[in-house]
Structures are given as structure tokens and as C-alpha cells.
């Protein structure tokens, strides 16, 4: 069988030979030991124990706990709000990334810095601030309330909190791509008579789409797991504005550990499926970046 030379080199090492490329650097066993010990104890043991517990529940109990109407309602509102937040962030993130990468204006560096604010700010503080700002008599809520738009203690509040906490993901994945991209290409299009709409659709969008998708999938994943920011603003009514993470918390407070485990496992498996998808999108993105 003929195998390309480089694949042969990379794959030919004996299966049990851990150190494949011989390195003169020391510290393999030490760092491998630390990494495996820490990963095992801090990350894998708890998740493994939880999955084992969930498997031990039996299918019937698992389904009753994780797929009853109240739990289903939380999945629905969590997914819907995360989708809204992600759609908003895809647009807002694109706007910020575009303005920061392409225009020079007073305050650009400040804007660049405060984009990271949602990551630096504790989620509970963000939730407290947003629920105050969007309350019916708050700084922003007082203008929205007469228009009949209710944000705090309603479903839009959940989406707002999710959008706030995950905005930097989208901006920070689009921004470097726009910075690397020469505006020559657009100008060439313009001199050839393309309209602005055509330039956006035919030149810009195809280039930045992988980055938008990569950022959006990270933002979506973060939104699904968000807890601190949301519980302050959501109102937390069952079947209405109760998110999955909160239902897990409520089940724990009721000492319903089986039910909490079942819902937590459902959320965890959904997150893993999403992570797989994100990795696929990101490897597409990476391939794209390398091509350029």
C-alpha cells in the first residue's frame, strides 16, 4: 500500500510509544503527571460521577425528571432566549468589530477596552445592574415601559442578560479577521462598479462568515449555561421565565438530587453536542485563516 511520505512519518510510531517525536526537552513525565492528576481530580471525576449517577437513575425516572412539562418549558425558554441573544450579538458584534477594525475616531481605544467589560464583570453584578437599568422605572426601562416593552421580569430580560454576558465572544472573533483583511479588495470592487450592497454580500460576508459563526456558537453556548446574570432579571416564574439552570438549582434546594442530576445531565450532553459542532465550525474557520 502506498502512503504519502509525511503521513507515513506521522502515523508509523508504535502505538504504545507515548513520546513519538523524541524531544531533548525534559519534563514530559512531570507535566503529564500534573496535567492528568489535575484534570482527573478537578474535571473528569465530578463529571464522570454525575453521568454515572444519571445512568443509575433508570430511564423512567430520568425521563420523568428531565422531560416533564416544567423542565421542557425551561429548555424552551432557555433555547429561545439564547437564540435571540445570539442573533442580536451577531449583528451588534459585527457592528462593533467593523467600526473598531475599520474606522479611527476619538474614543476608539476606550470602546475597544470596554467591549471586554462583560467578561470582567461578575455575572451577578451584571444581572443586578441590568435588572435595575431595565426595571419599569430604571434608566432604560422608563423609556421602554410607555411603549409597552417589558424587559425586566419577562422573557426579553433573559435574552438581554444572555446578550450582555456573551457579546465579547462575537466581537473578538470577527475583529481580527476584519483587521487582517485589506480594504483593497473592497475598493477594487467599488472601482469596478459594484454597489455597496454587492460589496457586502459578495466580498465581505463570505470572508467573515466563518468568524461570525464561530463567535456566535461560542456566545450561544455561553448563553445556555448562564445563570448569575439571568436570575436577577428574569422574574423566575415556572413555565414562563424559568431557565434550566435555575430549575436544577430549585431541585437541589428541594433535595431532589436525582431530578437535579437528570436535568443537569441533559444540559451537559446538549452542551457537549454543541461543543462538537463549535469545534467543527472552528476548524473550518482555522482552515480558512490558514488559507489566507
Amino acid at each position: 500500500m502506498s502512503v504519502p511520505a509525511d503521513i507515513g512519518q506521522r502515523r508509523a510510531a508504535p502505538f504504545l510509544n507515548w513520546k513519538r517525536r523524541r524531544s531533548v526537552l525534559p519534563g514530559f513525565s512531570l507535566t503529564m503527571g500534573i496535567t492528568l492528576f489535575y484534570l482527573g481530580l478537578i474535571v473528569l471525576l465530578p463529571l464522570g460521577v454525575m453521568l454515572t449517577r444519571a445512568a443509575g437513575l433508570g430511564l423512567d425516572e430520568f425521563l420523568r425528571a428531565a422531560f416533564n412539562p416544567r423542565a421542557l418549558a425551561t429548555y424552551k425558554v432557555t433555547l429561545l432566549s439564547a437564540a435571540e441573544a445570539t442573533a442580536f450579538n451577531a449583528c451588534a458584534g459585527l457592528l462593533f468589530a467593523w467600526v473598531l477594525a475599520r474606522y479611527d475616531f476619538p474614543g476608539r481605544r476606550v470602546m475597544d477596552a470596554i467591549i471586554d467589560l462583560p467578561f470582567a464583570m461578575p455575572t451577578a453584578v451584571a444581572g443586578l445592574a441590568l435588572s435595575t437599568a431595565f426595571a419599569h422605572n430604571g434608566w432604560l426601562g422608563q423609556y421602554l415601559d410607555p411603549l409597552g416593552i417589558k424587559i425586566a421580569h419577562a422573557q426579553p430580560g433573559i435574552a438581554i442578560a444572555m446578550a450582555f454576558t456573551s457579546l465579547p465572544f462575537v466581537v473578538r472573533s470577527i475583529q481580527p479577521v476584519l483587521e487582517d483583511m485589506d480594504s483593497d479588495v473592497e475598493e477594487a470592487g467599488r472601482t469596478l462598479g459594484a454597489t455597496e450592497g454587492q460589496i457586502f454580500r459578495r466580498i465581505l460576508l463570505p470572508t467573515i462568515l466563518p468568524a461570525v459563526l464561530a463567535g456566535a456558537s461560542l456566545a450561544f453556548a455561553r448563553s445556555l449555561g448562564e445563570f448569575g446574570a439571568i436570575i436577577f432579571i428574569a422574574g423566575n416564574r415556572p413555565f414562563d421565565t424559568e431557565i434550566s439552570a435555575l430549575l436544577i438549582f430549585i431541585r437541589l434546594e428541594e433535595y431532589e438530587f436525582g431530578a437535579a442530576t437528570a436535568i443537569a445531565t441533559t444540559v451537559l450532553l446538549a452542551a457537549f453536542a454543541l461543543m462538537l459542532l463549535t469545534n467543527l465550525v472552528q476548524s473550518w474557520h482555522q482552515r480558512y485563516l490558514r488559507r489566507g
Binding site: V49, L224, I248, A271, T278
Partner: peptide, 14 residues
């Protein structure tokens, strides 16, 4: 990619 609440539950189980 693990929701912090889920991480908390996992630790409770251990």
C-alpha cells in the same frame, strides 16, 4: 462548555 450550575451538581455528587 459546562454550565457552572452543572459543575456544582457534579461536585455535589462527589
Amino acid at each position: 462548555s459546562v454550565s457552572p450550575i452543572v459543575a456544582g451538581v457534579a461536585y455535589l455528587m462527589v
